[in-house]
């Protein structure tokens, strides 16, 4: 980082925060503050939805995931376009016609107050905890890379978001997201192109594909059926469909984005374009990871990508052993570079025999590299007890900080901040909307003027932001807490989706049956989490099915009871 990078980083951050605050000034009534006066065109709805879903970890982790594991993560998103189509047909016209502020408000018109409050409570639980991690995860990586204090980094990101979300509400969130996502995608593509242009021997895009393919990284589609494994086409289409139906249809962080659309058509088109663009966008981000992987076939990769941690380990008695392993790694790299060049030569000559020979030899070299890397991780774990030796989140950012020219480093760091801010802003805004509309205005203070509710929403936004930052500083002490929050969506989403699916499609089920079914389903899911080894992705399906089936049975029994009583 030099002065140009710092200037670019802070100018970008200041412009975005200033723009959001200025553009959304004067949101005095509750319609303006919580729905942005329903003024968004479809393209802004689409950008808002995409910016909300893509958190900083998406842009840091996904290239690292492709680097280590290939492109197969893409399959996880195949259910998303299907969910967009279903929600455009069902949820969007319903929410618009009922003029709701939150998704849960609809549940009271369909069922009753207790079901609405239960769903709102589930949402506040899952989103309130995860907003802390949305801030914490990038803050951890940024603080490591920049040498900042982790808690100060958390407060810095949280405060930036708070400035414009508190002052401008939903409108500020959506207005800033269109620029944030533009900066994010531009920065990512520039980083990918940099990796590509630094490849030797005029390697073409197709050759980069082939090279990655020969090394097993282009594992885009797996046709085997196993719902407990996230990475096959059926998990993506079925498990992903359930997950994205609940995320986009029943999570206020997303529902709040398309409720701000000008009309049913604008909201629908926003969702549908998200369905068109999301998979290609993830493909691009994963492919950037592949380009970094190909780049490191010809340039020396660090043996461990979290440089700060390995440097700490070198301050201990384990330093000699780590240095020895590093020099082994350097030797192996030279062999691999030679083989990668042989492989490119063979691909150009279309010499199948030589391709096969090079591929085999690279496989052997990769195995010894992997063994050296795991030995280094063991040494680091021994040197610093409790250290996190997973370094895939650091692959991309370390590449950026090492190989990108000054100026672009500042831009890419701004990208990480933007991604963290755009997701956090939507989440805080949704938490405040739900707290105000579904809890405060409905059950605590039902009669007051608009000014009162706008002020209350602002304070709830501040409250949730402070809660998120406090939770992040606790999470810093507890690794297993972070893992719990990362799957907390799976714990609540199935039940919430079951409630909403019953509300949309199963007119037979009434309020008491759905309420009891939802509580039983949630208890079963919590039991599964603590006492079984069922894959988390299946929780969504199990929870949803229990709510629907049990709701049916309970309603049938209730109807029988009423019939008997009336005889």
């Amino acid at each position: 980082m030099n002065s140009i990078d710092w200037i670019i980083l802070f100018t970008t951050l200041a412009l975005i925060v200033g723009y959001g605050t200025w553009q959304s000034r004067g949101s005095k009534n509750i319609d303006g503050y919580l729905l942005g006066n329903k003024s968004l065109p479809w393209w802004n709805v689409c950008l808002s939805i995409m910016a909300t879903q893509a958190s900083a970890i998406t842009f840091l982790s996904t290239p690292g995931q492709a680097y280590e594991d290939g492109m197969r993560f893409l399959q996880f998103y195949f259910g998303l376009p299907l969910a967009m189509v279903i929600l455009s047909i069902t949820a969007v016209p319903l929410y618009h016609r009922l003029k709701v502020y939150t998704a849960y408000e609809y549940l009271e018109t369909r069922f009753d107050l207790k079901t609405r409050s239960l769903a709102a409570f589930f949402f506040l639980m899952l989103r309130g905890l995860s907003v802390g991690i949305t801030i914490y995860a990038p803050a951890l990586i940024l603080s490591t890379m920049l040498g900042w204090n982790i808690n100060l980094t958390t407060v810095f990101i949280g405060s930036l978001v708070m400035i414009y979300t508190v002052s401008g509400g939903t409108k500020a969130v959506s207005m800033t997201q269109k620029y944030q996502l533009t900066i994010i995608m531009a920065g990512m593509i520039i980083a990918g192109l940099t990796a590509f242009y630094k490849l030797p021997n005029d390697i073409t895009f197709t050759e980069a594909f082939q090279l990655a393919g020969e090394m097993g990284k282009m594992n885009l589609i797996n046709l085997s059926f196993d719902l407990s494994d996230r990475y096959n086409i059926w998990s993506g289409l079925i498990g992903g469909l359930f997950l994205f139906l609940s995320y986009f249809g029943a999570d206020q962080s997303q529902v709040g984005r398309y409720l701000g659309g000008k009309s049913v058509t604008e909201s629908r088109l926003g969702l549908l374009f998200n369905g068109l663009l999301k998979v290609p966008m993830q493909f691009i981000i994963l492919y950037i990871g592949i380009l970094v992987f190909v780049f490191y076939q010809f340039h020396q990769a660090p043996v461990f990508h979290n440089q700060s941690l390995i440097n700490q380990a070198k301050q201990t008695e384990y330093a000699d052993r780590i240095t020895l392993l590093e020099s082994d790694y350097d030797k192996v790299f030279l062999e691999r570079k030679q083989e990668a060049e042989n492989l490119i030569g063979a691909i150009r000559k279309e010499d199948a025999k030589q391709i096969e020979a090079s591929r085999k030899s690279i496989e052997e070299i990769q195995a010894s590299e992997k063994s050296i890397r795991s030995q280094v991780k063991e040494q680091i774990a021994a040197a610093i007890p409790g250290a996190n030796t997973l370094d895939k989140d650091y692959v991309f950012i370390t590449f950026v900080m090492t190989y990108l020219p000054h100026g672009l480093i500042g831009l890419l760091l701004a990208v990480v901040f933007m991604a963290a801010m755009s997701s956090t802003a939507s989440e805080l805004n949704a938490l405040a909307s739900t707290t105000t509309v579904d809890i405060y205005k409905r059950s605590i203070k039902p009669i007051a003027d608009d000014y009162h509710y706008v002020t209350a929403s602002k304070w709830f936004t501040v409250g949730w932001a402070v809660f998120g930052m406090l939770f992040a500083s606790i999470a810093n002490q507890a690794e297993n807490l972070i893992q719990f929050v990362n799957i907390i969506g799976s714990i609540f989403y199935g039940t919430i989706l079951g409630i909403f699916l019953s509300a949309f499609y199963l007119k037979y089920i009434k309020s008491n049956a759905i309420f009891i079914a939802a509580i039983v389903a949630e208890a079963v899911i919590v039991y599964c989490y603590f006492f079984t080894k069922i894959a988390f992705l299946l929780y969504n399906i199990i929870g949803c099915l229990i709510v629907v089936v049990l709701g049916f049975v309970l309603q049938y029994l209730e109807n029988q009871r009423i019939k008997k009583a009336s005889r």
């Binding site: 376009p81 299907l82 455009s88 594909f209 082939q210 594992n219 369905g275 998979v279 493909f283």
Partner: peptide, 27 residues
């Protein structure tokens, strides 16, 4: 808006076929 729904589904289907082609021909 039926055409938009079909477009989204068609684009997904085309992408899956393209990715299937890539993963079989580059592996």
């Amino acid at each position: 808006w039926g055409s938009w729904y079909w477009l989204v589904m068609a684009v997904l289907a085309i992408q899956i076929m393209l990715y299937l082609f890539i993963s079989t021909s580059f592996q």
